[in-house]
Design a protein around this nucleic acid. Structure first.
Lengths: 179, 179
DNA sequence: AATATATGAATGAACG
DNA sequence: CGTTCATTCATATATT
């Protein structure tokens, strides 16, 4: 039970169930991701091609901030946030690194990562450090929190076979233009 | 998708099983899609900005790739996630506990509370944890609001178990430039 | 229905 | 490091 204890949301009725997807639904999602991945790659490439020729339009760089790839998360960059929010691209990269298993990135590593991420948006080494700290802590917490809850009287709420460390599941399409 | 999971694993047993995903897995996918969606949006926008000046480079239009397709309706509606909603009974109990002043329900307490609430409806420890976090944070924020107003703030450690959901101040920052 | 508000959940940063 | 705080996001509910 409590497979993903720290993440499950109570459904509604007291009936203990595991929310699941059918193969068909899964297929839809897979396809969606695939489409996005493809489009992203194409767009990134296209962008490269375009910017490569931007030189001829010397004056028109839109300043230096010419909508650099995936700047600013939610929307456009107009809103100055006080706290850092990783851009999708940054997130992708971070997740990738995290999934590689090498736990606590050394100070040196942090620097490198930050440097790379800086190409995709504003970021500081502290941000990277915090991110890894949080990521790890939360991943851990998720995995815990399921030992005992047999005290639920009369509730046949116990099962959920698929339980594991939620860490190693690779989102089947993780990498795109990680550069 | 040929419907069911009749692929590998010959599963001769008459009971054809359905391959499914847990909530956690689903969440991963959802996030992935979300990220891609965002990246796509930004890339497209970026592309638009660039092509706007492309006139001098006429030959480089790359056709109309614009991933305008059915997806990316601005907000990725791929997977509407539902959230836990406390039953009146659960809410009552939670409020009671909260009003008892013990500001920080330790993990152990959380477990107990969750166990108790489970008798009145589906719930998880995370739900309880979140509830307290939010309750406290919002109670606090409310206090901080309108410091110098004729309204005296009979707040904090009052009782009134059945009381809840007072008026809200003005967050005034919900959505920003949402396209 | 469209908009506004309430509130569960996610998460960057800070604390001990 | 583990835990907590503060802020933000997304969705459920209420209001028009």
């Amino acid at each position: 039970a409590s497979g993903e204890a720290m993440d499950e949301r109570g459904g509604g009725e007291g009936l203990g169930y595991v929310k699941v997807m059918t193969d068909a639904q899964m297929e839809v999602l897979r396809k969606q991701i695939s489409i996005y991945a493809t489009i992203c790659e194409q767009l990134v490439e296209m962008h490269r091609a375009l910017t490569a020729q931007q030189d001829c339009i010397s004056g028109m760089r839109l300043g230096n901030l010419y909508c650099d790839p995936l700047m600013v998360p939610g929307s456009h960059k107009i809103t100055a946030r006080q706290r850092w929010t990783p851009t999708p691209m940054q997130l992708q990269i971070l997740e990738n690194i995290f999934d590689q298993g090498n736990g606590t990135p050394s100070k040196q590593k942090i620097k490198e990562i930050a440097a790379e991420l800086a190409q995709h948006g504003q970021i500081s080494e502290t941000n990277v450090y915090n991110w890894f700290q949080n990521r790890r802590a939360r991943s851990k917490r998720k995995q815990a929190a399921l030992p005992n809850n047999a005290e639920s009287e009369a509730e046949a709420d116990e099962e959920s076979p698929a339980d594991k460390k939620p860490k190693s599941d690779r989102p089947l399409h993780q990498n795109i233009a990680t550069r």
